[in-house]
Each structure stands twice: as structure tokens, then as C-alpha cells.
């Protein structure tokens, strides 16, 4: 059982990058289709819809961030990888907020982005407001990121 700790810790890190990454890929893809549609009509709106398309992309980056911090903390990237099962499970749990919230917030944010893209296509001068709607969703990804970071940082000094 001793060796399983690192397995769980790594699984957590991988899931954070994997699941949040899938969410962002789906989201950016959806928004990209809509953005391409707008550009067909009016190529001058390219830069505006590009920004809206990219908004759901951040969850994938946050997932990568959590995965990377975990990897450095558990010693996969250099260092020793001795770890108790409890500690491994703690890391696994710490990665979950980013994985799960990352996925769902990316998809939901993409839907808000879609709506904002159609808003910008009709009223380009309302870009500032259009950008805020998807950004509101991102708050929850950020909160999840925060908890994941704090948890991972907090686990390392624990003596179990």
C-alpha cells in the first residue's frame, strides 16, 4: 500500500490538467464556431470575437497550473517521491475543485461567450459589456483554482 500515495497524487494532478483542459477545449471550440460565423459577415469584428472566443480557454491553463504545482510538490519533477497513502489522497482531493469546476465553468462560460458573440455581431459598440458576461462565470473557476492552490500548498508541510 505504501507506493499508492504517489499514484493518487499524480492521478489528481493529471485529472486537473485533463478535465479542465477538456472543458476549455470544448468551450473554445464552441465559441470558435460562432466567432467564425460572425467573421464571415464582417471581418472587421475579428479581434473582438477572438477575445470572446478565448475567454473559456483559461480553465485549461488553471488546470495546467494546478497540475504543475502538484507535480513539483510531490517530487515527480525532481526530488523524492516517497509518500504515504493518506497524503496522496489529500493531494488527489486538493486537485478536484480545479478539475470539476474547471470543466463545468469552461462549458458554461463558452455558452455565455456564444451569447456575447452574437451580441457583438449585432452591436459592436457594446463590446465592453459583452466581455463581462462570460467573465462573471470565470470567477468560479478562479475560486476553485484558489482553493486548489491553497490546499496543495497546505498539504506539503503536513506530517502524515
Amino acid at each position: 500500500m505504501e507506493g499508492l500515495g504517489i499514484v493518487f497524487a499524480l492521478a489528481g494532478a493529471i485529472l486537473a490538467a485533463l478535465v479542465a483542459g477538456i472543458g476549455s477545449a470544448v468551450g473554445v471550440g464552441m465559441a470558435g464556431e460562432a466567432a467564425a460565423g460572425v467573421v464571415t459577415d464582417d471581418p472587421s469584428k475579428f479581434s473582438k470575437v477572438l477575445i470572446l472566443q478565448l475567454l473559456p480557454g483559461t480553465q485549461g491553463i488553471y488546470g495546467l497550473l494546478i497540475a504543475f504545482i502538484t507535480l513539483t510538490q510531490i517530487g515527480v519533477l525532481g526530488g523524492s517521491s516517497d509518500m504515504s497513502l493518506e497524503k496522496g489522497l489529500l493531494y488527489f482531493a486538493a486537485c478536484m475543485p480545479m478539475a470539476v469546476v474547471g470543466y463545468f465553468s469552461a462549458v458554461r462560460q463558452a455558452k455565455a461567450s456564444l451569447a456575447s458573440i452574437s451580441l457583438v455581431s449585432k452591436k459592436p459598440d457594446q463590446f465592453g459589456k459583452a466581455m463581462i458576461f462570460p467573465a462573471m462565470v470565470e470567477t468560479y473557476a478562479i475560486l476553485a483554482l484558489l482553493i486548489s492552490i491553497l490546499a496543495i500548498m497546505g498539504i506539503t508541510p503536513l506530517a502524515i
Binding site: T58, I61, L64, L65, I69, T139, I142, L143, L145, L146
Partner: peptide, 23 residues
Amino acid sequence: ILSYSRLLALGLATGVICTVINK
């Protein structure tokens, strides 16, 4: 007030991705 935690999150995002690239 909690919403300002994004200052930390985004700051860390820049820093950590930099580290990944450099690594």
C-alpha cells in the same frame, strides 16, 4: 472582496506558466 482573489490567481497563473516554459 473575495472576488479580488483573482489578483492572486492571475498573478500565479503568469508566474507558474513562466516556470513551466523555462523548465
